[in-house]
Amino acid sequence: MTASVLLSLNTLVAVLFLLTAFMMISARQAQAVLYLYVGQGLLLAASTMLLAAHFASPELVIVAAITLLAKPIAIPLLINRLLSPALRRRRELSSVLGIPVALIIALLLAVVAYAVARPQVAGQDPAAATNLSIGLVVTLLGVFLLAIRREALPQLFALMTIDNGVFFAGIAITTSSALVEFAAALEGVMVVMIVALLARTIALTLGSTDTGEMTALRERERKP
């Protein structure tokens, strides 16, 4: 494969990665969010593989393999096991903002993030420039998603989206020593386990994972 085909494929993967972040903002069902997260993991692994071929870096191949095992397989299985009731609930996820408004704010965020990222990546390798800017945008969108969601499960996925965004930028700049990526990919599983256990405990105690309602320390202080 020639270099230009690799680059344009990587750009395609990057844009699809960005699209999953947008779709996560507009998703209304917990399961849809999970599927989007799986898609995001697959795209992340694909981009890592493409960059491994682009930079001819064997370390990135290992990172891609770990990503493929951890993000689209292990983490969804773990969440499925620990938070099955929250995942199966057919009720619509609630959001602080309406979806069209949230999408427009997300678009503005994306443009701002590009404006910030562009001078930084000028003169870099084109693949690194793509991954850095898209990674930054997805990280910002993840923060935004964390802010507008009310339930614990989509917030967990927002957290993992931030993680994915950082990872997406990271694979483009560390090519020789991929130790950080190994750690990051494995740490993701740990984070999911801890947050999911926490959410499960909250759900068992209070009967819901709606963190938007948890405004007081003790239950009886809540207004009737």
Binding site: L107, A110, Y114, P126, A129
Partner: peptide, 14 residues
């Protein structure tokens, strides 16, 4: 959003 991302991809990405 899809159309806007298309434009972003066109204008900003190499």
């Amino acid at each position: 959003a899809v159309a806007a991302i298309a434009m972003i991809a066109r204008v900003f990405l190499p």
